[in-house]
Design a binder for these strands. Structure first.
Lengths: 207, 207
DNA sequence: CACAGAGTAAACCGCTCAGTGTAATATAGT
DNA sequence: ACTATATTACACTGAGCGGTTTACTCTGTG
């Protein structure tokens, strides 16, 4: 179990994960072909099955990676001494930054498609979406508690805020394979979402 | 080619379409099984293939039905003499009414999953989404032209309006299989979406 | 060199499934 | 009764694919 030896095996392991991600991105879960995964990874099929018990478990591993990435994206602390608009802008930008990775985007599409297809996974899906917005949700709770937003329903507000962003810079990319917005477009989306949101929820003396 | 003769064949045709819809809803496109479609439709497999050349073409036929349903949902005329808020509320309610049909919902999920999976269908998907919002989009254009909305970007406004609704009453049902909102919840969603939208885009003297 | 753990190639198993061919039967108008 | 068209049962083809087995090789270490 020396260093180099371990590394070889680990490289294979990672190669398989990468190849599988590619494969899932291109063909979805059902369409993915384990022979192709092996050949993509430049590894024998048997090696794939030595590292992962089944297609399912391989998919799970990939899913968990995506999970983690989204989870930490919008997790920012509430700062009482910073303008609400600026903080929301920051959150929006973090969310939008996720789109920059086509890898993330395509894999998320596959995972969501699986969720949409199977009710069994609905519970997982619920966790998933919650995780993704949980950081911002905490922020929103604190903003409401601090009396800096004109509502007592932080959950609705959170959903609405993200809906405004995702409706223009997530779902179109998921479903229509729309091009990823340029930095300028992202800025516009972030700003107009915040503006729309704060015209309703913002306090007059907070700008 | 008499009436009754035609009717028999047409009944089979429709039975196949219905059965296929069921099957696609339950298993998705790839998972759907043509033998099961036939047995669901209480029709021989050969008859299925006499009516539809392939699984794909059967799926296309189903897709087109959904198309049509969504297309006409929010197609309302702009009325210069009615308050903007009331008209928007009407559009929102029409959009929300689509959710009442689990049939529509589940099939849309399957279709969208297929779109998310394949770039080839991206073009079709783009048309699809445009169609769906085109009614409201026309309304929005006219409202802007009539100077009743405080913007000159009807497209963004349309997207934002629908994002607010769908973020709470479409995507959660698609992805997380969230329960369909009750009538009371739907009313709340419609009202708060319109309120949020008009606080930004509405004119002060229009309420 | 010897050894062990990991990797490899390729055949293989079992099963699923889209789609077809066929020959018999049913339907409904004339 | 005759005819044209639909429908049916069912066997079958051919391909794809998840996963396994086997017999062999490679790599790095002690």
């Amino acid at each position: 179990m020396t260093v180099t030896k371990k590394r070889l095996s680990e490289r294979k392991h990672q190669a398989i994960l990468d190849a599988a991600a590619e494969e899932f991105m291109e063909f979805g879960f059902q369409g993915a072909n384990m022979d192709r995964v092996a050949s993509r990874a430049e590894v024998s099929k048997r090696t794939v099955y030595n590292h992962f018990a089944s297609k399912e478990s391989l998919f799970e591993s990939i899913t968990r990676q995506i999970w983690h990435q989204a989870q930490t994206a919008t997790d920012v602390p509430f700062q009482a001494d910073v303008a609400i608009a600026d903080q929301l802008l920051n959150i929006a930008e973090r969310e939008l930054a996720l789109l920059e990775s086509p890898h993330y985007l395509r894999l998320t599409a596959v995972v969501l498609a699986e969720f949409a297809r199977s009710q069994e996974l609905a519970t997982q899906a619920r966790d998933w979406v919650k995780q993704e917005e949980s950081g911002a949700r905490r922020w929103m709770d604190q903003a409401v508690a601090a009396g800096r937003l004109n509502t007592d329903d932080a959950e609705t507000a959170t959903t609405q805020f993200f809906s405004l962003i995702k409706g223009r810079a997530f779902w179109p990319q998921m479903i229509e394979h729309a091009p990823i917005p340029t930095a300028a477009e992202q800025a516009r989306i972030a700003q107009s979402s915040v503006a729309l949101f704060l015209d309703h929820y913002g306090l007059k003396d907070d700008r």
